[in-house]
Each structure stands twice: as structure tokens, then as C-alpha cells.
């Protein structure tokens, strides 16, 4: 049977969805390698980590970024570390923080440089040793880092 117009449109949508899923997964190339090095290959679960960042950034030189991790922050159950990675800056690491029950709340803020539109991933390690991840896609219109 010859491909119909409808068939081509549906195939196109299917392809777009597939590409989108690959992008949303976000663990490709050296970003995945950097995350694997950080976790030591331990299983990574999605969730509990939430980004607060503008989806559209005008100036990549100083982008306000907040990371929130769901945790009671008690001595028995707290966040030990939060590490942030990027996909397309010259270096994958952004910041690694260590905190504990005395923080009272697992929420950190900073300002980052973003070289271009890319995906950011944060990995939180809990006191029980489990790793949780969260990610966000950011569009940058004026790049940071690489200007002279």
C-alpha cells in the first residue's frame, strides 16, 4: 500500500515523540557519564528533586537557580548531598553541596552560568544512600561562559 498523507503525518508525530522522549530522558553522552561517576553506578530514581529556574533565560551569565528536595530533614531521614550537572557547558559539574539534618530544609539557591540552551540535572543523595534525580530544560537566548 502506498503511504497515505495521514500515515506520513502520524509517522512524523511518532518520530517527534520518540526524539522528545530521548531528550527528556536527559542521560545521554558525557552528562550520563558524569552522573554515573557521581553516583558510583548506584540506581537512580526520578523524583523528590525539584528545580526552580526560569524556563526561558535571557542572559546566561547569571541565572538564578533554586533546588528543592523533598525530605523531612531529620537525623534518621535527611538529604546528604545535592549535585547539579549541566549538559552543554564546557564542564559538566555545576555545584556539589553537602548538608545534613541541621539544615532544617533541603533547599539551596545559587546563580549559574549557562553556555546555551540545555538540560540541567540535580542528584540528591539521601541518608539511606538512595539517589534521586530531577531535571529541567532551559532555553538560553544570550550565552554565558564562552564570551570573550
Amino acid at each position: 500500500m502506498n503511504p497515505t498523507r495521514r500515515g506520513i503525518v502520524i509517522a512524523g508525530i511518532g518520530l517527534a515523540v520518540t526524539l522528545r522522549l530521548q531528550a527528556a530522558d536527559g542521560t545521554t553522552g558525557d552528562l550520563a557519564t558524569a552522573i554515573k561517576t557521581h553516583t558510583g553506578g548506584a540506581p537512580l530514581r526520578e523524583g523528590r528533586v525539584r528545580f526552580e529556574i526560569d524556563a526561558l533565560v535571557e542572559n546566561g551569565n547569571a541565572v538564578p537557580l533554586v533546588i528543592n528536595v523533598e525530605s523531612p530533614m531529620t537525623a534518621a531521614d535527611h538529604v546528604k548531598t545535592i549535585a547539579v550537572f549541566n549538559e552543554r557547558n564546557p564542564q559538566r559539574e555545576v555545584i556539589n553541596v553537602a548538608l545534613g539534618p541541621r539544615a532544617g530544609r533541603a533547599r539551596i539557591g545559587t546563580r549559574v552560568r549557562l553556555a546555551t540552551s540545555q538540560r540541567l540535572v540535580a542528584i540528591a543523595q539521601m541518608s539511606d544512600g538512595s539517589f534521586w534525580s530531577g531535571g529541567v530544560d532551559v532555553i538560553v537566548t544570550l550565552a554565558g561562559c564562552v564570551e570573550s
Partner: peptide, 27 residues
């Protein structure tokens, strides 16, 4: 550190913007 005990620490990389701003909390 709070009375000698480290309550928060961070390792920074070049992706942190000039004039590093860091926000966190303690009890």
C-alpha cells in the same frame, strides 16, 4: 559552620556565576 560544626558546605565549579551567591538554611 555553626559553633564549630559544619552545617553546610559546597564545592563550586566554573559554572557558578561571578560573585558567587549561595543561599541555604540552618536551624
Amino acid at each position: 559552620s555553626y559553633d564549630g560544626e559544619t552545617v553546610f558546605s559546597a564545592e563550586l565549579f566554573p559554572a557558578i556565576a561571578a560573585n558567587p551567591y549561595i543561599a541555604f538554611s540552618t536551624v
